[in-house]
């Protein structure tokens, strides 16, 4: 006779057992009235839960456009900061070479960070990740 872990009845109900094992369990349930009663009780509970879950569902109003705007605003502000630093660096260059160079270095970093941010943000529109069942 097939040895059955009681938890496998739950897994069978949830469709989480490999096909071969699921077939073994179904045969055992058919042959064993006590096992069948246990499985049917689990199935009844499962149906109750599913009704509860269905009754709790609603369609939330999600504004992803606003969320995207917030992210883009960060990138835009970074860009403005980079431009300001660049202008400041250039204006300082003749009088204070050191400050000018430092400003340009910071500017370069900011521009690169901004560009990377924009590239990564563009990547998110490329392909949807697989939503596993």
């Amino acid at each position: 006779m097939t040895q059955i872990d009681p938890a496998e009845l739950s897994a069978l109900l949830d469709g989480e057992l490999p096909q071969a094992r699921a077939a073994e369990l179904r045969a055992a349930i058919t042959a064993n009235p006590a096992l069948r009663a246990e499985f049917e009780a689990l199935a009844d509970d499962d149906a109750n839960w599913r009704r509860a879950a269905a009754s709790a569902q609603f369609a939330p109003a999600i504004d992803l456009a606003r969320a995207r705007l917030a992210l883009d605003s960060t990138a835009i502000l970074s860009g403005i900061l980079a431009v300001l630093l660049l202008v400041r660096g250039l204006s300082k260059l003749p009088d204070a070479m050191a400050w000018g160079l430092a400003a340009q270095a910071v500017t370069l970093c900011a521009v690169l960070a901004w560009a990377i941010h924009l590239v990564l943000a563009a990547d998110t529109t490329a392909t949807a990740p697989a939503t596993k069942p």
């Binding site: 569902q57 995207r68 529109t125």
Partner: peptide
């Protein structure tokens, strides 16, 4: 402004269950 399409596409089917889960919590 368009939302990031890949993220939105993946997220959309999850929303009713997400709402139910958050609601019961």
């Amino acid at each position: 402004m368009a939302a990031p399409s890949a993220y939105a596409l993946a997220l959309r089917p999850l929303l009713p269950a997400a709402a139910a889960y958050a609601r019961v919590l």
